[in-house]
Amino acid sequence: MRNIHWPVMAGAVLLLSGCAHTPPPPMLSITQTSCDALPDMQHAQPIPFNGKDDTSVSVLFDGKTACLQSGADAKSLYRMYRLPDAQSPYLISIVSVPTEVSVFVPRITILDAKGAPVREIPPDSLTFRNGNLSALFRSHANDSYLLLASDSDQVGKSSQQILESTQVTTAVSGPLYFTYHSGNDQTRQLLYSHNGSVEITLSPIPQAR
């Protein structure tokens, strides 16, 4: 048994180290040669929403995501979503979660039932909310599809972020313990990228106090 334990432990250590979080490198160009000329409506993923409870969809944009020929020389990764037929307006939140070095930069277009673009969420309305690059907007009556693509005009640009944080460290010595409060001031350069993690949430418009 003793002889077996060591390989098992070594394997476990290797597995654990394999699980250590290594963010994917920023994708600044799309190498796929065959991209869709138009968004694929047929495979749009429906987002269910009952009008009362938040519904979230988490997605990853990476090298396996479909691409769109968005201009003569411009390609974007994209995903298509079918929005619910709601009786009243609701909120659409799109949150792009940064890694240490990069963040997926979205271009958000709303299409009608025939697939014609009805409006684009202005890129300059994107803002950082709690450190995540976010869009928050209301649905309109004729919103049928959400086209979420990487914004090739923004990819390669960057945003400087100053992050201030505090930590509490606890040290134990015998029956005594001691907590130490300290701070950290960090500056990072977030590169806008084609790839990254995004969360889409549909929610009712909150009743403000």
């Binding site: 709690n130 400087q160 100053i162 992050l163 201030e164 505090t166």
Partner: peptide, 23 residues
């Protein structure tokens, strides 16, 4: 502007608009 403990599961409210201060 210059929220402490934003992102990474910090204490700042989840949807608080966070703007970096001018360096």
């Amino acid at each position: 502007v210059n929220a402490v403990n934003q992102g990474g599961g910090g204490w700042a409210a989840p949807k608080l608009i966070t703007i970096s201060p001018d360096p």
